[in-house]
Simulated scan of single mutants.
Amino acid sequence: MGWSFGVVRWAKGKPIHACDVLVFKYDPAAHDVVEVDEAAYNTCKMPIGGGASHTSGHDRVVLRAGKSFFVCSLPGHCKNGMKIAITA
């Protein structure tokens, strides 16, 4: 489906493990992917200095053990559901 609004529950029920590769596909002129902490994920407020930013439109992120949080940092996108939390 690609990186879009309403993907918050995409990971529910899927077996996800450390070292799995999460692929984000999107139009880089319209979106980005930023790895953030849980507070930024919950509030949709980007931390000072931001997080690891991905902007290619076809980003491959190797998941680490534990929780990972990703948001689109463009204004209004995160608050409208363009974010995802993954536990590996």
Rank of each mutant, 00 (worst) to 15 (best):
M1W: 14
G2A: 13
W3I: 13
V7C: 09
V7N: 13
V7Q: 08
V7F: 06
V8L: 07
R9G: 12
W10M: 11
W10I: 08
K12T: 14
G13V: 05
K14F: 06
P15T: 07
H17T: 09
H17P: 00
A18H: 06
D20N: 13
V21M: 06
V21P: 00
L22R: 02
L22A: 14
L22H: 00
K25C: 12
D27C: 04
P28Y: 05
A29F: 14
A29R: 14
A30P: 01
H31V: 03
D32T: 09
V33M: 03
V34R: 04
E35I: 06
V36H: 02
V36F: 03
D37M: 04
D37E: 07
E38D: 08
A40M: 06
A40Q: 01
A40R: 06
N42V: 01
T43W: 03
K45S: 07
M46T: 07
P47F: 04
P47Q: 03
I48E: 08
G49L: 04
G51D: 04
G51K: 02
G51P: 02
S53H: 10
S53M: 12
S53F: 03
S56K: 09
G57W: 05
D59V: 05
V61S: 01
V62S: 04
L63M: 00
A65R: 14
G66K: 11
K67Y: 13
K67R: 12
F70N: 05
F70I: 05
V71M: 13
V71L: 15
L74H: 15
G76W: 01
H77C: 12
H77T: 11
H77I: 09
N80A: 15
G81E: 03
G81Q: 09
G81H: 10
I86A: 07
I86V: 14
T87Y: 13
